[in-house]
């Protein structure tokens, strides 16, 4: 599965000149559980942070585990729970809770002119608007899985893990153009809070900076540990970007708005 989703970024050979950030693994917790109701367990840097899950969830667990590992150990950057997409040097953050349609929107935008920097975690250099790419598969849930398979039949999808604690989950591989730019940071110009509702016209609400700051800070991962640095970075971002709430049903309208507002 890793080879299918990560392609040639998944490799068995490591050169002495390469620096490995984290060591993680997925394995059977013991001999019995290899055969009897098979389970797998995730390990990261010497810790086993989660209870084991059914073996069918192995790839999903690996992806969640990678997010957990970065959130646990990366404190050189402010981490925001958000999708990040960019066109040229202009990056947009899409912070959103589960059920807002963020992942479908992310997949759509990546397939319509934007490059993906991240599906889940914006890695922001402190006191700047610079975001570092962390290009990994997009996590799709429930109805979004079939919808994306229909919309992007050329895409590469993992097998679906059914009835996880997040519902049905599958991962979609990032596109080639996103991977080619995975070492190129971008500059955040906009923060957009998307909310999907069926069959509505696009509603755009420009936000005042005070409200935007409060809503944005709710999505801070490592705020607790970085404290003041996180606060100051969030303030800097709010002051140097424009913020909107979007209520939408048609993603092409969202794309048109983002292009009009941020890329001219």
């Amino acid at each position: 599965m890793c080879r299918r989703i990560y392609g040639d970024r998944f490799t068995h050979s490591i050169q002495p000149s390469e620096f490995i950030d984290f060591r993680i693994g997925i394995k059977y917790p013991n001999f019995t559980r290899r055969f009897l109701k098979p389970q797998v367990q995730f390990s990261s840097e010497g810790l086993v942070p989660f209870t084991p899950l059914p073996a069918d969830y192995a790839f999903a667990m690996l992806e969640w585990g990678m997010n957990w590992t970065v959130a646990m150990y990366e404190f050189q950057r402010v981490i925001i729970h958000s999708a990040v997409l960019a066109k040229d040097d202009y990056a947009i953050l899409l912070p959103a809770p589960p059920g807002s349609g963020k992942s479908t929107a992310t997949a759509y935008l990546e397939n319509n002119g934007w490059r993906l920097l991240s599906d889940e975690m914006a890695l922001i250099t402190k006191n700047t608007t610079q975001v570092t790419p962390f290009v990994r598969p997009i996590c799709l849930k429930n109805a979004s899985i079939d919808l994306c398979k229909q919309m992007f039949s050329h895409g590469t999808f993992s097998e679906t893990a059914y009835k996880t604690h997040k519902g049905d989950v599958a991962h979609m591989s990032p596109q080639r153009h996103s991977i080619e730019e995975q070492s190129t940071p971008a500059n955040i110009v906009g923060i957009v809070f998307p909310q999907y509702s069926k069959d509505i016209l696009l509603d755009i609400y420009p936000m005042d900076k005070t409200s935007a700051m409060v809503k944005f800070s709710e999505n801070s991962f490592n705020f607790n540990f970085l404290g003041q640095q996180s606060f100051e970075t969030n303030v800097h971002l709010i002051e140097n970007t424009r913020q909107f709430e979007l209520h939408y049903s048609d993603l092409s309208e969202v794309n048109a708005f983002l292009n009009e507002e941020f890329c001219k």
């Binding site: 005042d208 900076k209 005070t210 700051m213 003041q228």
Partner: peptide, 13 residues
């Protein structure tokens, strides 16, 4: 104090 005049924020480190 936000530059758009919308308000201010207090933070306790």
């Amino acid at each position: 104090h936000f530059s758009d005049g919308s308000g201010c924020i207090f933070f306790d480190p």
